[in-house]
Design a protein around this nucleic acid. Structure first.
Length: 703
RNA sequence: GGGCGCGUAGCUCAGUUGGUUAGAGCGACUCGUUGACGUCGAGUAGGUCCCCCGUUCGAAUCGGGGCGCGCCCACCA
């Protein structure tokens, strides 16, 4: 059969994917080429958010996973890669809110129940967009097992885990200073906030010493409005300047509260005046000082971001207005020593992009002590390995400095916090039974909950623990560390043996790719333009184990050309062998030597070379060296096979030469299949090979 | 502020334990090529290997310092 002059990915890719999918071979229970000696190979997906669409990072991540899956499947492992999505609490909620806002509807118009219904509708409509994009990329996921972090079974897992921790005494309610988003009316974890540089004022405020109205201690602050809640003034214990005030009290102006002057090592004697006002209710550091010195926490700002009714003079004022008014009053009283311009970082919410108010709140916390310890042991002992290895230290540093996890959120979309068994309701709304759990609480259970746990399902029995997770580094702590201790606590096993942290894809100028900056590129555009194999090639070709990739489209172009080159290598060989030639199949190199001694002898060097390449590819994939391995395959196929070997055969026409070419063609297609599955499968389908399967499940050239 | 990574040809990057004239892909230029090929092949040009100091017979490679870029973590009132 004669091939077209050039490879046409447009007419090929969807047809080939359909062929694979309908064959059922992505499902390990139906996989035809299982080698009982090999065992299982399970790859874990990082379930994308239901709001998500494929970005370059996803494309790289899932190409890497797919390469591993295809390589192991061909090698005869019973191979599973479960697809799925994450409900992504606050992120999804805000997307749907924005969507409704276009129609002039707010979530409060709908009420909680109706709003959640809308989110489910949204999820039905758009929630699997990204999964379809993964199909376009060629990912061989077992779609019959698609999971979602709010499936009925998954809900059971979450409830089970919450109650388990509660019974163990590890979940508790507590007042803490948390990051509060006034806009979204919820608490945020430290990992959900970012900092932005602000030019503000730093005010130096004189606090009179109690009983000696002519003496003052001056504090410096950017947030004078919180002084209404000050319950101490703190200095560094080594600060000679303030020794004279030891044991004395200061009077907080405007509220005339007498507060102790305390010494605490957390105070930086070089900053400002070296004396600092302490507001335990509205600053995380101050809260900690308060704990150490048994200070009262006086709340000033309420959950709406306004001064509360305890301060009638300022009641109802927004933070910024209260600040102005208080500074004015202090000026009138002559208590502002000076005001200077000051640049500092201010916390913003990752989703709401508004300033975070630190405030005291009732929240649910999960005690991290024992859990972190387990994870530390597993990482230190190498039960879980990181690639590249440096991420191990990153993970350990975080785990060793971990704080208790604030697991409650005051939003509507998520797993509800199971009802408090003691029936306690806490007054201000937070920490009550209307809260939902932090998204990562459920994500942390993904490796086993996505397989049906806590029910003793076949899948959980057979496919847990998994072998490897491929992930971006920004969720190392947020997610990966949490899966490790969750796995250890609930299954007694680490959820995966290898953690692969892939490069971050940056724009060509080295800046972060982001939609909001307009520097984001859509991999789907490239798939349209050059084909999925080309995109996979381009990404992997640049994946050389560094921390970042500066993305260049030219590698995708090269990938597209390479697909065409492969096509023409096959086309030439097909012409060369003529219509009556039938491919021979060899089980192994030994088998080839027995069946075809003439070939083994005449082309010993060429066969040795392709064998060597096969071993190098196996080794490279085993060591997760994707880029290097692809470089080698590319160099071989183009510059050795096509440029030299094939050129040399143009003057020959014997059967042994045909045997050599067809053997090498088959082998190189197999070796390239994990990287460029579509074009290799398509070429393979045209080869006159008796009793062949799809390349997808043909055996890997081992030796 | 702490940590990590990077700085090699116009661009994106290799450079294995320090060893002769520093490589690849893309781009530029020259020539050639019809039994496969969005042509392809052969070849040319282009580099104080960020800077300084040191170790060494010898440094892109090792050590110290600096400069520049990027990312992560912490957040200082």
């Amino acid at each position: 059969m004669e091939l077209e002059k050039s490879y046409n990915y447009k007419t090929t890719e969807s047809r080939i994917y359909e062929l694979w999918e309908s064959s059922g071979c992505f499902n390990p229970d139906k996989q035809p080429n299982i080698d009982a000696k090999k065992g299982n190979y399970v790859v874990m997906i990082a379930p994308p958010n239901i709001t998500g669409s494929l970005h370059m990072g996803h494309a790289l991540e899932n190409t890497i996973s797919d390469i591993l899956v295809r390589y192991h499947r061909m090698s005869g492992f019973k191979t599973l890669w479960v697809p799925g999505t994450d409900h992504a609490g606050i992120s999804t909620q805000s997307v749907v809110e924005k969507d409704l806002a276009k129609k002039g509807i707010s979530k409060h118009d709908l009420g909680r129940e109706e709003f959640i219904k809308k989110i489910w509708e949204w999820r039905e409509k758009y929630g699997s967009l990204i999964l379809n994009q993964l199909k376009r990329l060629g990912c061989s996921l077992d779609w019959s097992r698609t999971a979602f972090t709010m499936d009925a079974g998954y809900k059971e897992a979450v409830k089970y885990v919450f109650e388990y921790y509660l019974k163990k005494g590890w979940i508790y309610k507590g007042k803490r200073v948390i990051n509060w988003s006034v806009k979204d009316q919820t608490s945020l974890s430290d990992l959900e906030i970012y900092y932005k540089e602000h030019k503000d004022s730093l005010w130096y405020i004189k606090y009179p010493i109690a009983g000696r109205p002519d003496e003052f201690i001056t504090v410096a602050t950017t947030r004078p409005e919180t002084m209404l809640g000050d319950t101490a003034v703190a200095v560094n214990p080594d600060d000679e300047r303030y020794k004279k005030f030891a044991g004395q009290k200061a009077v907080v102006p405007l509220v005339n509260r007498e507060v102790p002057i305390i010494s605490d090592a957390a105070v930086d004697l070089k900053f400002g005046t070296g004396a600092v006002k302490v507001t335990p209710a509205h600053d995380i550091a101050d809260f900690e000082i308060g704990q150490r010195h048994n200070l009262q926490a006086v709340e000033v700002i309420n959950t709406l971001g306004k001064v509360n009714e305890a301060f009638p003079e300022f009641k109802g004022l927004k933070v910024t207005d209260a600040r102005k008014k208080i500074v004015e009053k202090l000026k009138e009283l002559g208590l502002i020593e000076k005001e200077e311009e000051y640049t500092h970082n201010v916390a913003y919410g990752e989703r709401c992009h508004t300033i975070i108010e630190p405030m005291l709140s009732n929240q649910w916390f999960l005690n991290m002590k024992e859990l972190a310890k387990m994870a530390i042991d597993a990482v230190e002992s190498g039960e879980v390995k990181y690639h590249p290895e440096k991420w191990k230290d990153m993970a350990l540093t975080w785990l060793k400095n971990i704080k208790d996890w604030n697991i409650s959120r005051q939003i509507w979309w998520g797993h509800p916090v199971p009802v408090d068994p003691e029936g306690n309701k806490i007054s201000n709304g937070a920490g009550g039974s209307t809260d939902v759990l932090d998204t990562w609480f459920s994500s942390a259970l993904w490796p086993f909950a996505s397989l049906g746990w806590p029910n003793p399902t076949d899948d959980f029995e057979k496919y847990y623990p998994t072998n490897v997770i491929t992930s971006a580094r920004d969720i190392l702590h947020l997610w990966i560390s949490r899966m490790i201790y969750s796995g250890l606590e609930f299954t007694g096993k680490v959820p995966f043996k290898d953690v692969l942290i892939h490069e971050t894809i940056l724009a060509k100028d080295g800046k972060r790719m982001s939609k909001s900056l307009g520097t984001g590129l859509d991999p789907m555009d490239f798939i349209e333009k050059y084909g999925a194999d080309a995109v996979r090639f381009g990404l992997i070709y640049q994946s050389l184990g560094c921390q970042d990739i500066k993305f260049g489209e030219e590698f995708i172009v090269t990938g597209g050309r390479f697909a065409n080159k492969l096509w023409n290598i096959a086309r030439f060989i097909m012409m060369k062998i003529g219509p009556d030639y039938v491919f021979r199949k060899y089980e192994s190199f030994e088998d080839l030597r027995n069946q075809n001694p003439g070939l083994a002898e005449k082309y010993a060097k060429e066969l040795a070379r392709i064998n060597e390449l096969s071993m190098a590819v196996s080794k490279g994939l085993g060591e997760y060296k994707f880029g290097e391995t692809l470089h080698e395959l590319y160099r071989y196929a183009w510059h050795e096979l096509a440029d030299k070997l094939i050129e040399e055969t143009k003057s020959k026409d014997d059967e042994v030469t045909k045997d050599m070419l067809t053997y090498i063609l088959q082998t190189i297609l197999r070796l390239l299949h994990p990287f460029m599955p579509f074009v290799t499968e398509e070429i393979y389908s045209h080869l006159p090979i008796p009793d062949k399967s799809m390349l997808l499940v043909e055996h890997w050239p081992e030796k």
